[in-house]
Design a protein around this nucleic acid. Sequence first.
DNA 1: TCACGTCGTGCCATATTATGGAACGCCATG
DNA 2: CATGGCGTTCCATAATATGGCACGACGTGA
Lengths: 250, 250
Amino acid sequence: MKSLLKSLEILEAVAEHQPVSVGELAKRLSLPKSTVQRVLLTFHEAGWLRQRRGDMTRWEVGARILGVRPPELNGGRLYAAAREPMRELRDATNETVHLSIPDGLNSVVLIDRADCQQNVRTFSPLGDAAPFHATANGMAIMAWLSDQEIDDIIARGLPAFTEQTITRPDRLREELAAIRQRGYSLNMSNYRPAICAIGAAIMDADNRPVGSLCISMPQSRYDPARLSQWGQQVVEAARRISLMQPADPI
Amino acid sequence: MKSLLKSLEILEAVAEHQPVSVGELAKRLSLPKSTVQRVLLTFHEAGWLRQRRGDMTRWEVGARILGVRPPELNGGRLYAAAREPMRELRDATNETVHLSIPDGLNSVVLIDRADCQQNVRTFSPLGDAAPFHATANGMAIMAWLSDQEIDDIIARGLPAFTEQTITRPDRLREELAAIRQRGYSLNMSNYRPAICAIGAAIMDADNRPVGSLCISMPQSRYDPARLSQWGQQVVEAARRISLMQPADPI
DNA sequence: TCACGTCGTGCCATATTATGGAACGCCATG
DNA sequence: CATGGCGTTCCATAATATGGCACGACGTGA
């Protein structure tokens, strides 16, 4: 369905550049103006896009989309449960804390953030997708997946993002075993240069990983002497959130 | 674009019933199986839907959609700013607190909730859309819109939901004036029977309403003697959140 | 063991539908 | 007053979504 794929591209472009005009979108996506406009009007008809207040020529994403969420977020239980522990972890470390969930076996997506107060801090936009094998949040989740699911992720390839990215399957499996043993995962600039993170998985009542938490910091502030303490704090925060997660309904 | 409208209906149906199978969707929407499957595969290709872990025949919403959000939520500043005040308001009143944002001039949408601990409590699912003229959150926002925008909403009709719904335009304008004067809005079973609420608008740095907060309670616990105090508390909580809202970029 | 019903999947001729170039009206600018 | 850029509309045409049908897999009950 080419038209649907094209429409979703347009929707995502609106989300990224809102509020945005027809012409701008057409240029950006190299599509005819009339095609773009037809799609915008159709999304509008469905309630997914709206015109900006006071400016009928600029489009933005409507609130209807907020009713369409992955099942992990239904009832907002993960958000709600993570809120307080994330704040406390942020305050205890004075570093930014990230909350992510897996998107199937494709990637991990950042869904919430507790920002620290430092002048130099890491930043990732909410909704950002990142690979399992190169991030603290990704590896923390991956460590608790079944062997078959791990094989599946590895089979999709382990691209390198920095010199530190783990790209060899056997090396990755070793690292996952280490994570299972110590409880927390470690990202030493494996994904983005000069960004380190310490992560731990959040489990549901069936002991399946449904998300993860990490402390994200500039490499300049990474202190090996504190690793063990911070690792335990992340694990403890994740455990508290895990206790509030329901079982997965079939 | 019929095909796009149909596809969005299917996507929304998946969100509502996830995890869901092809056949179930086809029955529910009265569409041919092959059509539904083609749409599911296309959404999958675009990363918007995924198969449930361990069950290739059940579909659910993927995390990619989390990157597509209304502009009010960009950076999560409203969520983040509202978090603490909402909790405090909930604790102070022991009632559920709702956070909503306007969807253009169409409706207000519930985006967050701080649940109270009572055995009897109100419940609305996140993402729920409600009319401006019949809810505390809606009227709180509406009160601070321009005259033209208010006219616009009224022109779309003021349907009745209960005996108490305000359906006469002049009566609604009076109520909005009263809200502007006292600072908080009031819903006395105007929308859902036996549910009351006290609301106040959240303003951005340009003094435009970008959302609203309300205390939502069963009518049985509504106490006129406390109205003034709770009203002031909602207004104060909304004001604290407002101070953290950025100006609206053109 | 076999027959049956159910489900997900793949195919393909057909008709519906999306396409995009062109033209129009509007507005701000020089 | 001319110009360029914008959003919008139209329509013949080609591209594409459609959906009935059939196949294979699976689970069930006779």
